[in-house]
Amino acid sequence: MTTAEAFAPAKINLTLHVTGQRADGYHLLDSLVVFAGIGDTLTATPAADWSLSVTGPMAAGVPTGDDNLVLRAARMATDRPHAFTLDKHLPAAAGIGGGSADAAAAIRLCGGDGQGAVALGADIPVCLAGPGPVRMRGVGEVIDPLPNLPPLWVVLVNPRVTVSTPAVFKSLTEKTNPPMPPDIPRFPTAGPVIAWLKRQRNDLAAPAMQHAPVISDVLAALSPAPFAAMSGSGATCFGLCMTENAAARLASDITRAHPAWWVASAPILSR
């Protein structure tokens, strides 16, 4: 039997504008999403029964039963059972789409088209659309691939605090905020990317800090980067750097100052 492998990169919301709320309670978003060259790896082998085993530095606490997104997404993609092994490197419930990226990898490995995947998780369609930059709108189902960004490197930092996405959205007092500009420009170099991002927002940052005040400490640690913000609903934050060496130095400095935090540096991926 043939074993196949797929990379599930970290998802980063460079922006996250909450533009409304539907009658069913789902929030409407407008987000510029990129992916980093660090993530989980999923392998799949056709088998007599469905199964999932989890390895890697972030394996602890990851469920392996039928409620895991990998198995749920795989069953949506095919009726042929597979045995999966997930090498877990991304922290869970961290705002960087770890579970959704794993689910998207399962769909790819099983030959699915991802139709209906948004019902399993709002980030799964955008993870299927990577690894290049993507504009995500609606409740996650409106996906527009974008041109590649100029070379950029990212430092990801999670203080190992879990933040509840539903709780963060519930704490958001203003549900209808301006979207991003209608057209995201093509950026010739990294400098204009940074300047443009500084005019955008993550509307979930303030409510996330109410639940996890340490996020402000993470952003302070990332402040030497040209641009720093929170990804998704937190608690992971990111700093964008112009060079690989600058990202590596910043990651090293933060690790020394905060050895209990999860810290990683990686390039922003292109299509």
Rank of each mutant, 00 (worst) to 15 (best):
A4N: 15
A8N: 12
P9E: 09
A10I: 10
K11S: 05
I12C: 09
T15A: 14
V18M: 14
R22P: 05
Y26Q: 06
T41G: 09
T41R: 14
A59N: 07
D66Y: 03
A74S: 04
R75P: 01
T78N: 11
R80Y: 02
H82L: 09
A83N: 08
F84V: 00
K88Q: 13
P91K: 08
G95L: 06
G99Q: 02
D102K: 13
A106R: 02
I107P: 15
G111I: 09
G111L: 07
G116L: 10
G116I: 13
D123E: 12
G132W: 00
V134C: 09
V142G: 00
I143L: 11
D144P: 00
P145V: 14
L146V: 08
V155W: 01
L156D: 07
N158H: 07
P159A: 15
T165N: 01
V168T: 07
M180Q: 13
A190N: 04
G191C: 02
P192R: 07
I194M: 14
L197R: 15
K198Q: 13
Q200V: 07
D203F: 07
D203Y: 04
D203W: 07
A208N: 11
M209P: 08
Q210D: 10
A212T: 04
S216I: 04
A220I: 05
S233I: 00
T236S: 08
T243A: 15
I254H: 04
I254P: 11
T255M: 06
A257M: 14
H258W: 08
H258M: 05
S265E: 12
R271E: 13
